[in-house]
């Protein structure tokens, strides 16, 4: 049995009912869990002797609101996804845990008690994607400017932002003004496969 299959089996066994599905793609295992169970699922993955994911490598939020614009199907899952990349130093393997969530703000349990490394990663996800983590002791913005408004990595946030700043000679301080940059797209986003299919269909 290949190592990936074995990993998949161990993860499924460890999670039991918590596991909503697994996927093997690009030599990586992805498991999906429900947002309400995220903390117990990750704790189980950390502590179970067959999985032993002792390290949280990365935590990332994805906004799927424009995901299917270039695909010929509808998005049938919630808008946001939290993606946890775990690694086991002891058993030398990796897994990706994914959970889809909705709401404004989307809420999720903090995993800071499971791995202290989650602290800043969760602050980052809150800052750039506006995900609120309940149980996080210090959920402040981290990457953006002091007093920043909005969550810049959401798909409805424009690339050029809303405000620009400059030093005002008369007021002797930095002032914020609406952006003057015209948004422009140099290269359009295309899905060549689907474009080809459409050409053939015409």
């Amino acid at each position: 049995m290949s190592r990936l299959k074995k990993l998949e089996k161990c993860v499924v066994k460890c999670l039991g009912d918590l596991c909503l599905g697994t996927k093997l793609a690009f030599d990586e295992v992805t498991v999906e869990v429900a947002p309400d169970n995220i903390k117990s699922a990750l704790t189980a993955l950390r502590d179970h002797e067959d999985t032993r994911f002792d390290q949280l490598i990365d935590l990332c939020a994805v906004d799927y609101s424009e995901y299917t614009e270039h695909l010929e199907r509808e998005w049938d899952k919630p808008r946001y996804a939290m993606v946890y990349h775990l690694q086991s130093v002891e058993l030398n393997w990796r897994v990706r845990v994914k959970t889809f969530l909705e709401g404004e703000p989307p809420m999720l349990d903090s995993v800071i008690d499971v791995w202290p490394a989650a602290n800043w990663f969760e602050r980052e996800a809150f800052d750039v994607m506006g995900i609120a983590f309940s149980g996080h002791p210090d959920l402040r913005r981290i990457l953006t400017d002091y007093g920043f408004i909005g969550h810049p990595f959401r798909k409805d946030f424009p690339l050029s932002g809303y405000v620009e700043m400059r030093y005002d000679e008369d007021k002797k301080r930095v002032v914020y003004e609406p952006v003057t940059v015209e948004p422009r797209i140099l290269v359009p986003r295309v899905n060549r496969e689907i474009a080809k299919q459409n050409e053939q269909g015409e």
């Binding site: 990365d58 906004d63 496969e193």
Partner: peptide, 17 residues
Amino acid sequence: DGTNKPYRLKIRAPGFA
């Protein structure tokens, strides 16, 4: 998302941790 641009890119920087 199957196109010529990444839909989402996340960079895991060691210094951040």
